[in-house]
């Protein structure tokens, strides 16, 4: 399906997209980007997977991003039957205690990826079965991939 058709289909599920903060954009990217508010995230993802016309059953990339002021997560989804790709983004301004809903009940692969995002950015995921640090030791202080991370001892900056 083309990006236009996808955008029309998804907007037809929700009566008033602007009111709940759902935005579609295609500029500066190869795929259709949907920006969604944290409260609607889980419901939109479930619909994207279960609807047979979109059928996004393959989550191939889950990345955390520090946009400078906000923290966010970017999901890249693909369908194995129709072979179209879509990007879903979610952001929050809260840097002290950011949290989103988990999607690992929809796609099993999200379990490890969300642990990695928690490890590097500090974003918590509600209802995650095992949210612990993955790569760094348990006692590590701070979240390294954030833009304001400073480590005098280990890093030699060039």
């Amino acid at each position: 399906m083309t990006n236009e058709a996808l955008q029309n289909l998804i907007s037809s599920w929700i009566p008033d997209p602007i009111a709940i903060g759902l935005e579609f954009t295609e500029e500066k990217s190869q795929f259709l980007n949907i920006t969604v508010q944290p409260e609607q995230l889980h419901q939109l993802m479930t619909q994207l997977k279960s609807n047979s016309e979109t059928n996004f059953d393959y989550l191939f990339c889950l990345s955390g991003v520090d946009w400078g002021k906000e923290l966010g997560v970017v999901y890249h989804l693909e369908s194995t039957t129709h072979r179209h790709i879509i990007v879903v983004k979610v952001k929050t301004e809260d840097r002290e205690n950011p949290n989103f809903d988990t999607v690992c009940d929809i796609w099993y692969t999200a379990e490890f990826h969300e642990r990695e995002v928690f490890d590097f950015f500090g974003i918590k995921f509600n209802n995650h079965p095992n949210l612990k640090r993955l790569f760094l030791t348990e006692e590590w202080d701070g979240f390294p991939l954030r833009k304001d991370y400073v480590d005098e001892i280990n890093m030699v900056i060039k």
């Binding site: 194995t80 796609w107 099993y108 692969t109």
Partner: peptide
């Protein structure tokens, strides 16, 4: 096959 797709 379903598990393979879901686990990526």
């Amino acid at each position: 096959k379903e598990d393979a797709i879901s686990f990526g």
